[in-house]
């Protein structure tokens, strides 16, 4: 009972963090129609950034989260400008393969720069636990959940309530028409890509706090994020949150019922089933 409660609670909270890790992928997919195969590696950059911020400067990675997000956004902007922008409008494969190339280069840079060693961001709260009723969960899950939900909701508000969000949705739907009525499509895309990278980096730091990571952790992160994005509906922000939590809980259910070895499998099967039953995603009716 206690084990099940703890497991489900952890899954629920972790699912919230998944939503944040998938948010960037979702935004970029929705607005740029770009399958960012380097998404997982951007998450790993976020984890490394948190790690080195803590070990080099001693700044707590959670306090430094805005800094990490900003740094990644600044890194992502030229990446978009020089690599992705020239390929826009040439179908999905070319930008997708470019990002795969970026992914390979990044992994290699991690190995060369930071060695292939396993790392983990170590703080007091990243390993202490909180017990509520029958469930015991890690503090980091609770904190991560709060940060993630706040970020996702904020992103949702930005997209639905602000003029930038309006521009963003217009670009996502019809970039030519948006340009003609005065939207600087290139700028919106670059900002979206940068904002996506910022969210991704923040998610990566949280993953680094909760788990461990290596230069090659990106692939696993990417698949998980994909599952969340597709389940939530491509480009749908609140859908991402619902899907993240759904996947987190389902994984835990799978873990409880079949063993942790089937965790990812359960999630994938549910994801495949959802993809087939509702290709538009769970939350596609309204954003």
């Amino acid at each position: 009972m206690e084990a099940i409660a703890s497991s489900l609670a952890s899954g629920f909270l972790l699912g919230g963090i998944f939503a944040l890790t998938a948010l960037g992928l979702s935004l970029v997919l929705g607005v740029l129609r770009l399958v960012n195969l380097a998404h997982g590696d951007l998450l790993v950059i976020g984890a490394y950034a948190g790690y080195f911020l803590l070990t080099v400067t001693g700044i707590d990675p959670l306090l430094g989260l805005p800094l990490i997000a900003l740094a990644l956004a600044l890194l992502a902007a030229p990446l978009y400008h020089f690599l992705i922008r020239p390929l826009m409008g040439r179908g999905v494969e070319a930008p997708m393969m470019t990002m795969f190339g970026v992914s390979i280069v990044l992994q290699n840079l991690f190995v060369v720069g930071f060695s292939a060693n396993t790392r983990s961001i170590e703080t007091g709260y990243s390993t202490s636990s909180l017990t509520v009723g029958p469930a015991t969960v890690g503090w980091i899950y609770v904190i991560g959940f709060a940060i993630s939900v706040a970020t996702v909701v904020a992103a949702h508000l930005v997209v639905t309530r602000t003029s930038f969000g309006r521009d963003l949705r217009a670009c996502a739907h019809d970039s030519v028409a948006a340009a003609v009525i005065g939207v600087n499509v290139g700028r919106v895309r670059m900002l979206t890509f940068a904002a996506g990278a910022a969210c991704t980096a923040a998610g990566g730091t949280l993953m680094g706090l909760a788990f461990s990571f290596t230069p090659s952790s990106g692939a696993g992160f990417l698949l998980n994020s994909f599952a969340v994005v597709v389940l939530g509906g491509l480009g749908s922000i609140l859908g991402t949150l619902v899907a993240g939590i759904t996947i987190g809980v389902l994984q835990s259910l799978g873990g409880v019922l079949l063993g942790d070895g089937y965790r990812d499998l359960v999630a994938l099967v549910v994801f495949l089933a959802a993809l087939i039953i509702r290709p538009q995603g769970l939350m596609s009716m309204r954003r």
Partner: peptide, 28 residues
């Protein structure tokens, strides 16, 4: 019957999910 209902990007992502699911099954 499942994958073919998906079009474009969805099909691509669906095939990726299928491949990963199969790998996980074989690992276990």
């Amino acid at each position: 019957p499942g994958l073919m209902r998906l079009r474009g990007l969805y099909f691509t992502v669906g095939t990726l999910a299928l491949a990963e699911a199969l790998r996980l099954v074989m690992i276990n």
